[in-house]
Write a protein that binds this DNA or RNA. Structure first.
Lengths: 234, 234
DNA sequence: CGCTCGGTTGATGCACATCAAAGGCTGTGG
DNA sequence: CCACAGCCTTTGATGTGCATCAACCGAGCG
């Protein structure tokens, strides 16, 4: 218990530097995290499932989680990739009896700060600035979905390129154009509504041309210009 | 000027019955609409364009507006259909220097209550209940987008069916299963990322089988069961 | 050593897009 | 009042991007 508490305190130090909590006093941050606990996930662990009653929301501390929905065909459609600093499930906290609209699954070892809904209602709700910050995060996410929708008729290569660029933009990884999360071709496919094979054909083409490099699930962009060129259909 | 003011007052009576303002005192509603003005649009008028600086948000009073985004191919992708009671552009009010992420265009004669951003910041922001109501509306919208994303691999017929059902659900039109807005095949196509011709082929099939009926742009669903059956790919 | 998981490649087919052409309907301007 | 332009719908013919199916390979792992 002492351990859990100090883990929480350590995590608070970590999350304080996220844009979400920038310039917020440590006391306030502690309050906003009241009742919170650190969840350590390993690869493919889930935080919650689509359709379950939503009792908690939270913040991604490290690693990454994918948010997916089951499709009528039994497959999964990936709705969003959440990286450190992202808020998860805050959106539905405003509802009286919320259900999770997605399943959250860890991609590689990850950590998550899980906060009870009650804390949202008692501490976040009456803190307009925090609500606004949350809205800004969500507005970004909404924007991404709309971008993707605008690309629905574009060729697959353009969609993959856009996804890569978007993921690169979220976390400025210095000059090393490395994606901030481990990503399989299948996950890219599920995110874009394409088949694994098609995604592979696009990307191994790029590999051969030296635009990108992958080892393990780490994708590195060598020639960003080329990828950006693909975005606009060559 | 007296006219404008009384028009606003009349509109406030109207919007008071929307879920957004349910059980909110008239005084409060007036405050929330401070500086608001009624915009009367005719078919294909626009409220604002993609990329413009966002100085206002607002509420749809009557008719309908489509929210669309230009695509790289020069076409338009429709992101959302907004019907009476919907809030438009509230989302981006939280941002310091917001730009409209969509273009809003009237579908047939419509009316809109246009409210300055300042009112959002001074009256809405500090009213947690209102913020929550806005979030709930947006959460519905987000949910719809996610539904559509989950259907990305479904056959076109399923997508059209889902769209129709979703639009029916938003406004319970008694037993008359009439869509609450005038909708062209092109608009359906732009909303789903399909071609007009394909949408027409699907829908004229349904017409011949007597599932639906259209006159003008008014679509009436005769056999909802059949349409719902199409949603799950037969 | 068999297992699962991720990546890759080729052959085949289909659900759509695209192109083309036509008719109705509305508004607009000479 | 007619001509003309735009918009919406429809139908058919043709083409293609991508899904699907079917193998196969290498790596990690109990």
């Amino acid at each position: 218990m002492g351990d859990a508490k100090s883990a929480l305190e350590a995590a608070i130090i970590e999350i304080k530097s996220f844009p979400l909590f920038l310039d917020v006093s440590e006391v306030t941050v502690s309050k906003l995290c009241e009742g919170g606990q650190i969840v350590v996930s390993s690869h493919r662990n889930t935080l919650f499932h689509f359709g379950e009653v939503g009792t908690h929301f939270g913040v991604v501390i490290s690693g990454a989680y994918k948010l997916s929905r089951p499709t009528p065909q039994g497959e999964d459609a990936i709705v969003h990739f959440s990286t450190p600093g992202d808020v998860i499930a805050a959106f539905i906290m405003a509802q009286p009896a919320p259900k999770y609209p997605v399943t959250a699954t860890a991609m590689g070892p990850s950590r998550y700060l899980r906060i009870p809904r009650q804390t949202y209602l008692s501490h976040w709700k009456n803190h307009p600035d925090m609500i606004f910050r949350v809205q800004n995060l969500l507005s970004t996410r909404m924007g991404q979905m709309q971008n993707q929708k605008a690309q629905i008729k574009a060729p697959l290569a353009a969609k993959v390129a856009t996804l890569l660029v978007e993921l690169l933009n979220k976390h400025d990884h210095g000059n090393e154009m490395m994606l901030p999360l481990p990503l399989t071709r299948k996950e890219i496919a599920d995110s874009l509504g394409a088949s694994v094979e098609s995604v592979i054909r696009v990307m191994s083409d790029w590999s051969k041309q030296g635009f990108i490099q992958t080892s393990d699930q780490q994708i590195k962009v060598i020639k960003p210009e080329k990828i950006i060129a693909e975005m606009n259909c060559e």
